[in-house]
Design a protein around this nucleic acid. Structure first.
Lengths: 215, 215
DNA sequence: TAGATTGTTAATCGATTAACAATC
DNA sequence: TAGATTGTTAATCGATTAACAATC
C-alpha cells in the first residue's frame, strides 16, 4: 500500500476542513489573500501549525502577500474531497436526526446526506427536510443502490451497535456516531464520536477548574 | 494556585466521563466488579490507559477481583461532579437546540440544563421539553439569578460570538459550542467545539483513505 | 533595501504504551 | 502456590512549537 506514503493526521485533516470554511467566508467578504497568522487567529491555531498543515496539501503562499484565498480553498478542496463526491446516510430521524438533516441541508454538494432511515413508520416512506426517509429494514439495499459510503448515527444508545453492524455490512466505511456508546467495528472502518454527554461533562469540569486546561 | 497541583488532561477527563457511563450500565446489568481490560474494551481504550486514568482519581482495585463497579462510579463522580451540582443554559432553541434539550432531559441531576434562550418570540416565555425558555435579551439577568456556570451554544454561526460574549459577561466559565465558528473568549473560559461539518468531513476523508488512520 | 512572511527542520512537549515488582 | 491483575515508572511515540535561512 504505497500510494500515499504519509497520511496527514486526524488533527491536520480536521483543521484543513476548518480552514476551508474560513476561506469560504473570507472569499465572501472579498478578501483575496491571507497570512498564516490571520488564518491561525480565526481557527484558534498557531501560525506555525497553519503553515505546517498547508504544506501538507501543497501550499502556494508568498512571503509578501501570504496565500491566495481562492487558490488555497481549491487546493484544500482537491485534497479533502472525493473527485466524484461522497454520499452520506443518516440513521435515526428523531430530534437529533432532524437537526442534523437541517444542518447539512444545502451544504457542500460533494458531501451530502442522500438517505435517512428510521424504524418509526410515521417517519418513513416520505421526504423530511429534503431527504428521503426509508424503513430501517431497507438499509442495506438502499445503501448499496445509492452508493453511500459514510453514515451519521443518531439513534438511541441501545440501537447504535446493531445499526453500525448493518451499515458496515452494507459497505459503509466511515461513521459519525452521536450515540453515547463506543462502537465495535472491523479494521478499516473509521469512527468519529460526538458524545454530547461526555463533552458537556468536560466543559463543566474545566469550567470549575478554570484556567487550568485552557485553550 | 497550589490547591490541585496536577490537573488531569482533557483526554483523561473525557475518558473518566465515559467510564462512568459504562459503569452505570454495568451496574444495571448486575455486575459488581470489572477488570481494567474489560472497561478498556468497552471504552475503546487500552487497559494501561484505564489503570492510569483510574489512578488519577484514586482507584481502589484488587488484583483478584478488579474494581468494584459501584465504588468506582462513586469515586469518579466525586472527582468529576461539583458537590453542589452544576447548572447549564442552552442558547438557541432551533432544531439542534431542541435535540439537545431532549438529549439532556432527565439525565444526571447534578448537571442539567435549567434555562434556554432564543430571539424568536414564538419560542420564548414558555416551557419547551421541560425547560423554561427566555428571551435572549434577558440572558445576563437570568444567568446570574439562576447561578448558571456553563452553557451550550446552538445558534447559527453568525450569532455565536455575540452570544458567547454575553454569556461570558454574565459569568459563564465553560461553553459547549455547536456553531461552526471558533469563539474568542477571555483566558479562563473553557470552550469545547462540536463542529458537525468538520467531523463529517473527517469521517469522509478517512473513509476513503481507509485503514490509514484507524482507531 | 529593510522587513515581514514563507517553507522546512530541529527541539520540546505531552500523551500513550510497555514493562515489572507487588499483590491477592 | 501459580497466575492474572494491580499500581506505577520508564520508554516510545506523535504532535506542537520554536527557529531560521530563503524569499519577495
Amino acid at each position: 500500500m504505497a500510494p500515499d506514503a504519509s497520511q496527514p493526521s486526524r488533527h491536520t485533516v480536521g483543521r484543513l476542513s476548518l480552514y476551508r470554511g474560513l476561506l469560504d467566508r473570507l472569499l465572501g467578504e472579498g478578501r483575496s489573500h491571507v497570512f498564516s497568522h490571520e488564518l491561525a487567529a480565526l481557527a484558534g491555531a498557531t501560525a506555525s501549525q497553519v503553515r505546517r498543515d498547508l504544506m501538507a496539501v501543497g501550499s502556494v503562499g508568498s512571503p509578501v502577500r501570504g496565500y491566495d484565498v481562492r487558490a488555497l480553498a481549491d487546493t484544500i478542496g482537491r485534497f479533502l474531497d472525493a473527485p466524484e463526491g461522497q454520499r452520506a446516510a443518516l440513521v435515526g430521524v428523531g430530534h437529533l436526526g432532524g437537526a442534523i438533516l437541517a444542518f447539512f441541508a444545502g451544504r457542500r454538494p460533494h458531501l451530502s446526506i442522500v438517505a435517512a432511515f428510521d424504524t418509526d413508520p410515521q417517519k418513513t416512506d416520505r421526504v423530511i427536510l429534503g431527504c428521503r426517509c426509508y424503513q430501517a429494514a431497507e438499509m442495506e439495499k438502499v445503501i448499496a443502490a445509492e452508493k453511500i459510503d459514510v453514515a451519521v448515527l443518531a439513534v438511541p444508545a441501545g440501537a447504535a451497535q446493531a445499526a453500525a453492524d448493518s451499515l458496515v455490512r452494507a459497505g459503509v466505511r466511515g461513521l459519525l456516531n452521536f450515540a453515547p456508546v463506543r462502537l465495535r467495528v472491523p479494521e478499516g472502518v473509521f469512527v468519529e464520536d460526538m458524545d454530547m454527554a461526555v463533552s458537556l461533562e468536560k466543559v463543566a469540569f474545566f469550567a470549575r477548574h478554570a484556567g487550568t486546561a485552557d485553550a
